[in-house]
């Protein structure tokens, strides 16, 4: 499967590009979500258990496009609740910055998913079994520890359309890599994680995307991991061959990525608005600035502000 299918989300009534009410957003998303999931009904509804993996790496406001909108995941949960008897779980992972349950709660995931009886699981929790897997990446075997809910269940990845801190597109591979434990470099980890988890589907949240600023792109994309990540990378104005992990998976594809665009979403316009975007600069003071300030302080007798001390 190397086709990416697009579905337009009606954004005409969104003043400022954003509706704060999650029920309103879910209602707006219902037909677009259904149009994408209906095409995969056989494969995803036939399984008893499905795991959804959104991009919930930090509680940034969903209107920024920096995280997957809980309304998108809520609309997916509503589709499963309506159309199937599938047991649905939504996963994320605590890291050294913030506990996943805090992020999920602040973003409203827990509240919306509670309506459908969907579990929200922190895969870093000790109670979640992990399995050691070995996958080839860039000609080498990579060892990784993968949470069982990502191995034993059908997985749908729901990333958001945004750049990452290193400048490349966020995407499905990066979202999957964030859920496993692996000591390999980021590119090999992403390849090995994608191969080990082997998701059934990617559903990219492009309702609000982040370029240099938030952009109400009002689009959802679905398809395989490399296909969706390739289109996402292109929309963010990056070259796919600049992303080692993505290049590795794309080279394995037998056919080029095709885009099915029945709603005639204006991709050129979205690309123009997102292109070249990157995250805001870090607050961390550049070492050269810290050094210069210390020299100045020594010469003048002034104090060095703690913010300019550097680490």
């Amino acid at each position: 499967m190397n086709a990416v299918r697009l579905a337009a989300v009606d954004g005409a009534d969104r003043r400022g590009g954003w509706r704060p009410g999650i029920d309103t957003r879910m209602a707006t998303l219902e037909s677009a979500i259904a149009s994408l999931l209906d095409r995969h009904r056989e494969s995803i509804a036939a399984t008893d258990r499905v795991t959804i993996a959104p991009d919930v790496h930090y509680p940034f406001h969903p209107s920024t496009g920096m995280v997957t909108d809980p309304a998108v995941v809520g609309a997916i949960a509503a589709w499963f609740d309506r159309e199937t008897d599938t047991d649905l779980t939504v996963v994320g992972r605590s890291d050294d910055r913030i506990a996943f349950d805090r992020t999920a709660s602040y973003l409203g995931y827990e509240r919306v998913l509670d309506r459908f009886g969907t579990d929200v699981v922190d895969v870093a929790d000790e109670s979640v079994p992990q399995r050691n897997e070995y996958r080839a990446a860039d000609g080498r075997s990579v060892a990784l520890s993968v949470p069982e809910p990502l191995l034993d269940r059908t997985v749908i990845v729901v990333p958001t359309l945004r750049p990452s801190a290193d400048g490349s597109a966020g995407g499905a591979m990066r979202t999957l890599a964030s859920l496993v434990n692996c000591t390999a470099d980021p590119a090999r980890t992403a390849v090995a994680a994608t191969r080990a988890i082997d998701p059934e589907l990617v559903l990219l949240d492009g309702t609000i995307a982040y370029g240099r600023d938030p952009v109400a792109a009002n689009v959802l994309l679905s398809g395989s991991v490399p296909a969706v990540d390739a289109v996402g990378t292109s929309l963010l104005g990056r070259e796919t061959d600049e992303n080692d992990a993505l290049s590795t998976l794309l080279e394995e594809g037998e056919t080029p990525v095709a885009v099915e665009n029945p709603d005639e979403v204006d991709l050129a316009s979205i690309r123009e608005r997102l292109s070249g975007g990157q995250l805001p600069p870090t607050d961390e003071t550049h070492p050269a600035v810290s050094t210069a300030y210390r020299i100045y302080a020594a010469a003048s007798g002034d104090a060095v502000p703690p913010q300019l001390e550097g680490r």
Partner: peptide, 13 residues
């Protein structure tokens, strides 16, 4: 306390 991207540090609770 939650800051902005990139989130480099843990926010105090």
């Amino acid at each position: 306390p939650l800051g902005r991207p990139p989130a480099d540090a843990a926010p105090p609770s």
